[in-house]
Amino acid sequence: MNKLIEIERLNVGYENKPNVLSDVSLTIFEDDFLGIIGPNGGGKTTLLKTILGLIEPQDGVIKFYNNGKVVPSLNIGYLPQINQIDKKFPISVSEVILSGLTPHKQLIRRYSSKDRQKVKDVAERMGIEELLPRAIGELSGGQLQRVLLGRAIIDNPKLIILDEPSTYVDKLFETNFYKLLGDINKEIAIMLVSHDVGTIISLVKNIACVNQGLHYHSGSDISQEWLTNAYQSCPIEILGHGSLPHRVLMEHDHLHEHEHSANTKD
């Protein structure tokens, strides 16, 4: 299978935290559904921003590929955490999805009738066609996630990156949303970041744990030993329950307020 992105010995840091990512190597393939897990502060979001070109690495190489050949950049769609979206901003659902067609660094674009038809087609696929004229401030968390996903895929990217997409939605929506991602993955590679290990494992083809370094696992048949090693100070268990498994943080020193019970996420 052809590579999309190849990361070699990446080091990234900030002035007040020089070693956020250290010696990270990773390959993302054309049909990948890659799950990214890891403890808070481990560098997951920093990795995403570096791939998107928002952060300059200190060392290392990121190569992009198209049809097996190295290219200077790659068309990547991005779905941010919805708590980063200003729902008071006066913009409609249609305009948000359209903005996914605006080239980077271009502030103004004249949209054609063909562009607006693309919006309708994407909205129909997302199941939100009736929401197109509404302001984003009127939407539920689940509806907004579908709008942002529509924005991420409208320009036919080679890869979409999703940062904690299920944080602010209910479980019924979450299940349907992940089914939609499975359908999209037939055409587009996906990189999905989540704190919910159980859900990630039930969905993805490959998985990586980012905790300053990076532990990669081909396939989703993850052992307890691999997870414990990858998380180090935050060992975890996987439980199956209902349509999607849950993750459980096992008892350890960093959860003082839960010394005698596991912390579960329903």
Rank of each mutant, 00 (worst) to 15 (best):
V248R: 14
A208T: 02
F33I: 15
L54T: 10
Q143P: 06
K49G: 11
I62D: 02
L255Q: 12
G42Q: 07
V119K: 04
E138V: 03
E56I: 09
V248C: 13
K69E: 15
G68V: 06
D266T: 15
G53H: 04
I154A: 11
P39N: 06
V71I: 12
Q232E: 14
K105R: 15
V169T: 13
H256V: 08
R146H: 10
L203C: 01
P57W: 12
R109W: 02
A230C: 04
L214W: 04
I207A: 02
Y111K: 13
A123I: 11
D115A: 01
N83S: 15
P245G: 00
E259S: 14
L227S: 03
L148I: 07
Q58Y: 15
D170Y: 14
D115W: 07
F33H: 05
I7A: 00
E174I: 05
S99C: 05
E257K: 13
F177Q: 04
T264S: 05
P18R: 05
H217P: 01
G35D: 15
L26A: 01
N263V: 14
T45L: 03
L162N: 05
S140I: 02
H260R: 09
Y65N: 06
G127V: 03
T45H: 04
G60E: 09
T199P: 00
E8I: 09
K205G: 04
G142E: 11
N176Y: 11
M191T: 04
K44C: 03
L255Y: 15
L4W: 07
L21R: 00
I160Y: 06
